[in-house]
Simulated assay, not measured.
Amino acid sequence: MTAKNVYAYSLQPVNYEISEQEQRNAQLALSRSNFKIGQKAWLIMGAIIALAILGLIFIKNYSTIFCWVAIVCVVIYFLVRKFGIEWYAKRKLNEVPVQEIKGLRMGVQPHGISMQQRVGANMGTMTVGWKDIHEWYDTPEFILVNFKVKGQDGAYILPKRMDSNKFPFSTIRKHLNEEVGAAKKI
């Protein structure tokens, strides 16, 4: 049994550094989850396409231009939702300045996630309790945790590469599943 299995929390906080690219990737992944085409939209698009195709097949001696227009409109709507909104979101996200995060240390404790930062000669500590977290996302590249502490919203992007530094992602998932519920889908 390894030391990682014996003690599932951070004995020492690990370095927490996130590059600008990692932050942008997390923001883009979250924005993609907001722009998914819902089931209702798929049903409406399918019904319009089906009726337009039936119109092309069964309408004789009349103009079928309205059927072609309906098909083209559905295709344009799909392309805008699939590619146009993502392009616009990338453009807007690049306009927002992102600060590289360095010089922080993060640890996992039974009561929450703690973060340490040197402020002048002193070491500042902040702990986000498991009950302060209101939603979380689990992706192949990172875990995103949204929380509210003292009336202020915040978020942690926890890159999976920190797992190699003995940062206990399995413990985080266990606590988040117990306290918050299952991870939201991106």
Results as ranks from 00 to 15, higher is better:
Gly124Val: 03
Thr2Met: 12
Met1Ile: 15
Trp136His: 03
Pro159Lys: 02
Leu54Arg: 03
Pro159Gln: 03
Phe169Met: 14
Ala121Asn: 11
Tyr9Phe: 15
Glu22Asp: 12
Gly154Asn: 02
Ser10Asn: 11
Met126Phe: 03
Thr2Gly: 14
Trp136Ser: 01
Glu86Met: 14
Lys60Arg: 15
Leu104Asn: 11
Leu79Ile: 10
Arg105Asn: 14
Tyr9Met: 14
Leu28Met: 10
Glu141Pro: 01
Arg81Lys: 08
Asn165Ala: 10
Phe147Ser: 04
Thr171Lys: 03
Leu176Met: 01
Gly38Thr: 14
Val75Lys: 07
Gln12Ile: 11
Gln109Lys: 11
Ile59Met: 05
Leu176Gly: 02
Lys184Met: 11
Lys150Pro: 02
Met45Glu: 14
Ile71Tyr: 10
Val145Asp: 02
Ser31Asp: 12
Glu17Ile: 06
Lys166Trp: 06
Thr127Arg: 01
Trp136Gly: 01
Asn146Pro: 05
Lys185Gly: 05
Ile172Val: 09
Arg24Asn: 12
Gly84Phe: 12
Val119Trp: 04
Phe142Trp: 08
Val96Cys: 06
Leu56Asn: 09
Ile157Asp: 07
Gln116Tyr: 06
Ala155Asp: 13
Leu54Met: 07
Pro110Trp: 01
Glu17His: 07
Glu179Arg: 01
Lys150Phe: 00
Lys90Val: 14
Leu144Tyr: 01
Lys184Ala: 07
Lys102Ala: 12
Tyr16Thr: 13
Lys92Ser: 06
Glu179Gly: 00
Glu179Thr: 10
Ala26Gly: 13
Val108Asn: 12
Ile133Glu: 03
Met115Gly: 00
Lys40Thr: 15
His175Trp: 08
Gly129Cys: 01
Ile172His: 02
Thr2Tyr: 13
Met126Val: 08
Arg118Val: 13
Pro97Gln: 01
Tyr88Met: 14
Phe142Gly: 01
Thr64Arg: 09
Thr2Glu: 13
Ala121Ile: 12
Ile76Ala: 03
Gly107Cys: 05
Val149Leu: 02
Gly120Met: 02
Tyr9Cys: 15
Ala121His: 08
Glu178Pro: 07
Gln99Asp: 09
Lys148Ala: 10
Asp163Leu: 06
Gln117Ile: 08
Cys73Asn: 13
Lys82Val: 11
Lys4Val: 14
Ala3Ser: 14
Ala50Trp: 03
Lys36Asp: 10
Tyr156His: 04
Gly84Met: 04
His111Ser: 13
Ile172Cys: 02
Gln23His: 01
Tyr9Glu: 15
Pro140Gly: 00
Lys131Asp: 15
Asp163Cys: 05
Gly124Thr: 07
Trp87Val: 15
Trp130His: 04
Gln117Phe: 03
Lys90Leu: 02
Glu178Leu: 12
Gly154Ser: 04
Val74Cys: 09
Cys67Thr: 04
Ile172Glu: 03
Lys131Gly: 00
Ile172Pro: 02
Asn61Cys: 00
His175Ser: 14
Phe78Lys: 03
